[in-house]
Computed example of a mutant assay.
Amino acid sequence: MAAGRGAELLRPSSSAGRATFLELFFDLAFVVAGVLALVALLDMLRGRGAPLEPPAPPIGREATDVRDPEA
């Protein structure tokens, strides 16, 4: 069935109908990563994505603007 360089990487045809738990885990991880990427993309397109400005400094620390050294 499979001839060539990658033939030894394939499973024998007798076990072709069953997936291992490791394969199912990686399938699930791939689906979850895809869904998270899609949600992030949709949030960005709707304007609710991550802010472009740096976060505010913690309370109790001096607020310095690193973008403007003259201030």
Rank of each mutant, 00 (worst) to 15 (best):
P55V: 05
D68G: 09
F30C: 00
A71W: 04
L41T: 10
S13L: 13
A2T: 06
A71K: 04
L36M: 04
L22C: 12
V35R: 02
G4K: 09
G34K: 00
D27V: 01
L10K: 14
A33R: 05
P12W: 02
L45I: 15
P58W: 00
E8L: 14
D65W: 10
G49N: 05
L24Q: 12
S14H: 08
V32Q: 02
G4T: 08
P51M: 08
R46M: 06
L22Y: 11
A3Y: 06
G47T: 00
V35T: 12
A37Q: 02
F25W: 11
A33V: 00
R67Q: 13
L38E: 01
L28R: 07
P55T: 01
R46P: 00
T64P: 01
A19Y: 09
G47Y: 00
A50G: 04
P57E: 04
G49T: 06
F26Y: 11
A71S: 08
M1S: 07
R61A: 02
L28A: 10
E70L: 10
E23R: 05
G6W: 11
P55C: 05
E23H: 04
F21Q: 15
L42P: 03
A71R: 09
G6P: 00
T20V: 15
A50V: 08
G4C: 13
R18I: 10
P58Y: 01
A16M: 14
E70H: 12
G17T: 11
V32E: 02
P69N: 03
P54C: 03
F25G: 02
E23C: 03
E53S: 02
P55L: 06
P51H: 07
V39Q: 12
R5W: 05
G6A: 13
L24K: 11
P51Y: 06
L28I: 07
L36D: 00
A56T: 10
F30H: 00
R5V: 08
M44K: 15
E53W: 03
P12Q: 05
L41G: 08
L42Q: 12
